[in-house]
Deep mutational scan, measured.
Amino acid sequence: MFYPNSPQTSPQLTQIPYGQQYAMMQRQIQQPYHPFATTEPQARLYPYHYQGPIQQEQGGFITQQSTAASPQYVQMRVTPVDQSIMSGYPNQTANGSSSSSFNYNIHPQQQQQQQQQQQQLRHHAMPVGSVPLQDDRYRKQLIVNYLAPDVTSTDLHELFSRFGELDGARIIYDKQTNMSKGYGFVYFCHAEDAKEAVERMSGYEFHGKWLKVGYSTNPLNIVPSNSSPYVHAGSRGAAG
């Protein structure tokens, strides 16, 4: 039997160049792979992502010199942007860049009308829970959420009447099932009393439920100042 490094198959040491006398086997001759043993700084910083320098080929596509990437890492192929796409944008300079302001050559009167329309939209648009300043009635009506099913309009009136005089209180019921929808409205005579009720009743436990109280901004629920107070009856038909 002959071994790869046996004296019968191995040459004389004098015939082997210096430095390879003890590297006779194939696994010894093959050098191990060192990912950080390279002179390129990109490979030292990113050993798993770097795959060699990027070269520009004919046709405008950018390719990489090395083989496919590892399945664990996804390499994105980048193509140059066609400058003709950006030619339609206004205020574009000769080098292809555009300024931040756009001039669509709008007539001054049209621009003024658009600004007025935007101001009107901001004036009428009102986020949930906010209180408008032009109508004091919005500051007097509250919406009470997360009410228990057994709470009546009379219970709601008695709960909030300790903060001040009320114009009314009612629970909203479903017309088909005649069941409470879980929320109601309270109408105060003074805005200061309503503000105190919002601050003190939010998070209050009532009939096993934690109440959420806020201003009601729905104009359909506003009680006119010259109208008669609501009837605080315990029956659902009268309260709904």
Rank of each mutant, 00 (worst) to 15 (best):
3 Y>R: 09
3 Y>H: 06
4 P>Y: 14
4 P>K: 12
4 P>F: 00
5 N>T: 07
5 N>V: 12
7 P>Q: 04
7 P>N: 14
8 Q>G: 07
9 T>I: 05
10 S>N: 02
10 S>G: 09
11 P>G: 09
12 Q>F: 15
12 Q>S: 04
13 L>W: 15
13 L>Q: 13
15 Q>C: 15
15 Q>F: 07
15 Q>A: 13
16 I>Y: 04
16 I>N: 15
17 P>N: 01
18 Y>Q: 15
18 Y>C: 07
19 G>W: 04
20 Q>Y: 00
22 Y>F: 12
22 Y>G: 08
23 A>M: 01
24 M>Y: 00
25 M>P: 10
25 M>Q: 07
26 Q>W: 00
27 R>P: 09
27 R>L: 14
28 Q>D: 14
28 Q>Y: 15
28 Q>T: 09
28 Q>A: 11
29 I>C: 00
30 Q>W: 14
30 Q>S: 03
32 P>F: 05
32 P>K: 05
32 P>R: 01
32 P>Y: 01
32 P>M: 02
33 Y>F: 07
33 Y>G: 14
34 H>Y: 14
35 P>T: 08
35 P>E: 05
35 P>C: 06
36 F>G: 09
36 F>L: 12
36 F>T: 10
37 A>W: 15
39 T>F: 08
40 E>C: 13
41 P>A: 13
42 Q>L: 07
43 A>W: 15
43 A>R: 08
44 R>A: 01
45 L>Y: 02
46 Y>D: 01
47 P>S: 10
47 P>K: 01
49 H>W: 09
50 Y>S: 03
50 Y>G: 03
50 Y>H: 13
51 Q>Y: 15
52 G>A: 12
52 G>F: 10
53 P>N: 09
53 P>A: 13
54 I>D: 03
54 I>C: 06
54 I>A: 11
54 I>Q: 00
54 I>K: 02
55 Q>N: 10
56 Q>T: 11
56 Q>G: 03
57 E>I: 06
57 E>H: 13
57 E>K: 01
58 Q>L: 09
59 G>M: 02
59 G>P: 15
59 G>A: 11
59 G>N: 05
59 G>S: 08
60 G>T: 09
63 T>S: 12
63 T>I: 11
63 T>D: 00
64 Q>Y: 13
65 Q>I: 13
65 Q>P: 12
66 S>F: 07
66 S>W: 15
68 A>T: 09
68 A>C: 07
68 A>E: 12
68 A>P: 03
69 A>N: 12
70 S>M: 01
70 S>E: 01
70 S>T: 02
71 P>I: 11
73 Y>D: 07
73 Y>C: 13
74 V>N: 01
75 Q>M: 15
75 Q>Y: 05
77 R>V: 15
78 V>F: 12
79 T>N: 03
79 T>A: 03
80 P>G: 11
80 P>R: 11
81 V>G: 07
81 V>S: 03
83 Q>R: 05
83 Q>N: 07
84 S>N: 07
84 S>T: 11
84 S>G: 07
84 S>I: 11
85 I>V: 04
86 M>F: 12
86 M>D: 05
88 G>W: 08
89 Y>G: 05
90 P>L: 09
93 T>D: 09
93 T>Y: 13
94 A>V: 06
95 N>L: 11
95 N>P: 12
95 N>F: 15
96 G>D: 05
97 S>E: 15
98 S>D: 14
101 S>W: 14
102 F>V: 12
102 F>K: 13
102 F>Y: 09
102 F>W: 12
103 N>K: 08
104 Y>C: 14
105 N>C: 12
105 N>E: 00
105 N>A: 14
106 I>G: 10
106 I>S: 04
108 P>F: 06
108 P>A: 06
108 P>K: 07
109 Q>G: 09
110 Q>K: 11
111 Q>N: 12
111 Q>H: 11
112 Q>H: 09
112 Q>F: 14
113 Q>F: 07
113 Q>E: 12
114 Q>Y: 09
115 Q>A: 11
115 Q>G: 07
116 Q>V: 13
116 Q>E: 02
117 Q>S: 12
117 Q>Y: 08
117 Q>A: 03
117 Q>I: 11
118 Q>N: 09
119 Q>I: 15
119 Q>L: 05
120 Q>P: 10
121 L>W: 15
122 R>E: 07
122 R>G: 06
123 H>R: 01
125 A>R: 14
126 M>P: 09
127 P>E: 03
127 P>Q: 14
128 V>H: 09
128 V>D: 03
131 V>P: 08
131 V>Q: 08
132 P>N: 12
132 P>I: 15
132 P>T: 12
134 Q>G: 15
134 Q>P: 09
135 D>H: 09
135 D>F: 09
135 D>G: 14
136 D>L: 06
136 D>H: 01
136 D>S: 01
139 R>T: 01
139 R>G: 06
140 K>V: 01
140 K>L: 09
141 Q>L: 01
141 Q>A: 01
141 Q>S: 00
142 L>P: 03
143 I>T: 02
143 I>F: 01
145 N>Y: 12
145 N>G: 06
146 Y>A: 00
146 Y>L: 10
147 L>C: 00
147 L>S: 12
147 L>Y: 00
148 A>H: 08
154 T>V: 13
154 T>Y: 15
154 T>F: 08
155 D>F: 00
155 D>R: 03
155 D>N: 13
158 E>I: 13
158 E>S: 08
159 L>I: 14
159 L>R: 08
160 F>C: 08
160 F>T: 14
160 F>G: 09
161 S>L: 05
162 R>Y: 10
162 R>V: 03
163 F>N: 00
163 F>K: 10
165 E>M: 03
166 L>T: 00
167 D>I: 09
168 G>V: 02
168 G>Y: 12
169 A>D: 13
170 R>W: 07
170 R>D: 00
172 I>V: 04
174 D>I: 04
174 D>W: 02
175 K>S: 08
175 K>Y: 05
175 K>P: 07
176 Q>L: 03
176 Q>F: 04
179 M>I: 07
179 M>N: 14
179 M>R: 08
179 M>F: 06
180 S>K: 05
181 K>S: 04
181 K>I: 02
181 K>R: 09
182 G>H: 07
183 Y>F: 00
185 F>N: 12
185 F>C: 02
186 V>F: 04
186 V>N: 13
186 V>Q: 11
187 Y>C: 03
188 F>A: 03
190 H>E: 13
190 H>F: 15
190 H>R: 10
191 A>L: 03
191 A>I: 14
191 A>P: 02
192 E>C: 06
193 D>F: 10
193 D>L: 02
194 A>K: 12
195 K>Y: 08
196 E>Y: 13
196 E>S: 11
197 A>R: 11
198 V>Q: 02
198 V>M: 12
200 R>C: 13
204 Y>D: 00
205 E>C: 14
205 E>L: 03
206 F>I: 03
206 F>L: 04
206 F>C: 02
206 F>D: 10
207 H>Y: 09
207 H>P: 08
209 K>A: 05
209 K>P: 06
209 K>L: 01
210 W>R: 07
210 W>Y: 03
211 L>V: 06
211 L>R: 07
211 L>I: 06
212 K>Y: 07
213 V>D: 13
213 V>S: 09
214 G>S: 07
214 G>Y: 01
214 G>P: 13
214 G>M: 02
215 Y>W: 15
216 S>Y: 04
216 S>W: 13
217 T>G: 05
218 N>R: 04
218 N>A: 11
219 P>L: 05
221 N>T: 10
222 I>Q: 05
223 V>A: 05
225 S>Q: 12
225 S>T: 02
226 N>I: 13
227 S>A: 10
227 S>Y: 05
227 S>I: 05
228 S>H: 13
228 S>L: 09
229 P>W: 11
230 Y>A: 09
230 Y>H: 08
232 H>S: 02
232 H>L: 07
232 H>E: 13
233 A>R: 04
234 G>I: 05
234 G>F: 00
236 R>Y: 00
236 R>M: 13
237 G>F: 14
237 G>R: 05
239 A>G: 14
239 A>V: 11
